Simulated assay, not measured.
Amino acid sequence: MDLRSLTPELSVSSQIRPEELTALAAEGFRVVINNRPDAEVGPDENGETMRAAAEALGMEYRAIPFVPGQVTPDMVEAQAEALALPGRKIAYCRSGNRSTVLWALSRAGEEPTAELLETAAKAGYDLSGVRPLIESIATHGR
């Protein structure tokens, strides 16, 4: 796990394991957002395993699998809904990049594009390649 804070309420990470959820819950995380498709992981880290582990700890779990290059408006909307849930959130994928992309797209139009890109960069993610999409959503909506 490589936990990186984007906001006080949201951190992103590379793949997390079910046993790591206990420590995350103890740190105050209440929502787990899985942006990694099951085809990329084995049965020990698939969506159902992660859902069961999160729910056993009283955490909310949302699966919004993001195949690289295949972002959809429904995914952006689902991410926005998950991010609106109460409590601290952890979103994860293979490296944290896709989770950061979905965060930025869900915030497009609500925060300046430059600030979204800067926040991502401070966490170690270069979103310059999705800047046109962020700006398009900011202009035209999801």
Rank of each mutant, 00 (worst) to 15 (best):
G58M: 13
S99Y: 03
A53R: 12
I64W: 03
I90K: 01
Q70D: 10
K89F: 14
R98Q: 11
E60Y: 14
A84L: 09
T72P: 07
P43C: 09
A104K: 00
A53E: 09
R107L: 09
I90P: 01
D44Q: 15
A53Q: 10
Q70I: 10
E77T: 08
N97G: 13
M75L: 07
V71W: 02
R88W: 03
E55K: 08
L85E: 06
V71M: 05
P65C: 08
A91G: 11
Y92Q: 13
T72L: 06
E81F: 10
A54C: 08
L85Y: 02
G96P: 09
G47Q: 07
M59R: 07
D44N: 11
A54H: 09
A54Y: 06
G47T: 06
A78T: 06
E60M: 13
P65L: 02
P65W: 08
S106Q: 00
V101A: 09
A104M: 05
V76C: 10
R51Y: 04
L85A: 06
R107Y: 03
E55N: 12
N46P: 06
G47H: 11
V76F: 12
A80N: 02
E48Y: 04
P68E: 05
G87V: 11
T100D: 02
P65A: 06
R94S: 05
C93G: 10
S106R: 00
A54V: 08
M75H: 03
L57Y: 01
E60T: 13
P43S: 14
L57P: 00
L83A: 10
I90T: 01
Y92I: 10
E81D: 15
Q70G: 14
G69N: 10
A54I: 06
T72I: 05
R94K: 15
G47N: 11
A91Q: 05
M50T: 03
L83D: 00
R62N: 15
N46M: 13
G47E: 12
